[in-house]
C-alpha cells in the first residue's frame, strides 16, 4: 500500500487523481443534468424519476453518493494541496507579470473551483437538506415528494435563478480547462486526437452546462410553470 501513498503525494500522482476524479465528477454532472432536464417533461415525469432514483436496486443510489463524495473530497483536497505547493514554489513574484499563452480559465482554476464548491454546498443545503431558501416538502396528487414544484418555485425567484445561472456558467468555465487538461495529465497527447482532447471535450462541457443553465431560465421566463 505504501506505493499508493507515495504516488498520491507525488506531483504526477496528484495530477492523475485530479484528472480521474475530475472526469468522474463530470460524468456525474452529465447524469445529474440529464435527469433534471425532465423538468421540461412536467411534474409527473420529474417526480416519478425522483422516486425511481431512490428505489434503485442494491442501494445503488448510496453507492453512487459514496463514490461521488470520495471523488469530491479527493478532488478538493489534492487541488488545495497542489495550489499551496505551487504558491510555495515561487516565493518571490515577478515585478512585471506577463502571460504568453496560458488561458484565463487555466489560471483561475483554484478560484472557479472554490466558487463551484460554495455553490454545491448552497445547492445541497437548498434542495437536498431543505435548510435554506426552500418551502417545506409538499406532496404531489399521487402522494410523492413534489420535487418538481420545489425546484420550479425556487427558480421563480430571480435571485436564486441568477445564483444557479452564474454558478453553472462558472462550472462550464472550470470544465473548459479541466476537460482538455485531464487527457494530458494521464499522458494522452497525440496529434491525431488532440482536436477531440482540446476542443471537443470542452465543447461537450459547455453543451452540458448550457443545458443546465436553460432550466432556471426556462422557469424564469415562464416556459416551465
Amino acid at each position: 500500500m505504501s506505493w499508493i501513498v507515495r504516488l498520491q503525494k507525488s506531483s504526477l500522482g496528484s495530477k492523475y487523481i485530479m484528472a480521474i476524479t475530475g472526469a468522474g465528477l463530470f460524468l456525474f454532472v452529465i447524469g445529474h443534468f440529464a435527469g433534471n432536464l425532465l423538468l421540461y417533461w412536467g411534474q409527473d415525469a420529474m417526480n416519478a424519476y425522483a422516486v425511481e432514483l431512490h428505489n434503485l436496486p442494491y442501494g445503488a443510489l448510496w453507492i453512487a453518493r459514496g463514490g461521488l463524495l470520495i471523488m469530491v473530497l479527493a478532488h478538493i483536497f489534492i487541488a488545495y494541496r497542489l495550489t499551496f505547493q505551487n504558491r510555495a514554489a515561487r516565493p518571490q513574484r515577478y515585478q512585471y507579470e506577463a502571460t504568453l499563452q496560458a488561458s484565463f480559465a487555466s489560471r483561475t482554476m483554484p478560484y472557479t473551483g472554490t466558487i463551484v464548491l460554495l455553490f454545491i454546498l448552497f445547492h445541497l443545503a437548498q434542495f437536498t437538506f431543505h435548510l435554506v431558501a426552500v418551502d417545506p416538502v409538499q406532496l404531489d396528487p399521487q402522494g410523492r415528494e413534489d420535487v418538481y414544484s420545489m425546484v420550479v418555485h425556487a427558480f421563480q425567484s430571480p435571485v436564486y435563478s441568477a445564483i444557479y445561472v452564474v454558478s453553472v456558467l462558472i462550472l462550464g468555465f472550470h470544465l473548459s480547462h479541466g476537460l482538455s487538461s485531464m487527457w494530458q495529465s494521464v499522458g494522452l497527447n497525440h496529434r491525431k486526437y488532440n482536436l477531440a482532447f482540446r476542443k471537443l471535450s470542452p465543447l461537450l462541457g459547455w453543451i452540458v452546462c448550457l443545458a443546465g443553465v436553460s432550466l432556471p431560465l426556462a422557469v424564469l421566463f415562464g416556459l416551465i410553470k
Binding site: 504526477l12 496528484s14 505547493q85 514554489a89 499563452q101 480547462h177
Partner: peptide, 19 residues
C-alpha cells in the same frame, strides 16, 4: 520525477506557458 519533487518545483497545471 522524485528528484524534481524534492527540489521544490511546482506542479503542472497544463498552462503550457513553458512550451
Amino acid at each position: 520525477v522524485e528528484q524534481m519533487d524534492k527540489e521544490g518545483f511546482g506542479n503542472c497545471t497544463n498552462y503550457f506557458e513553458c512550451e
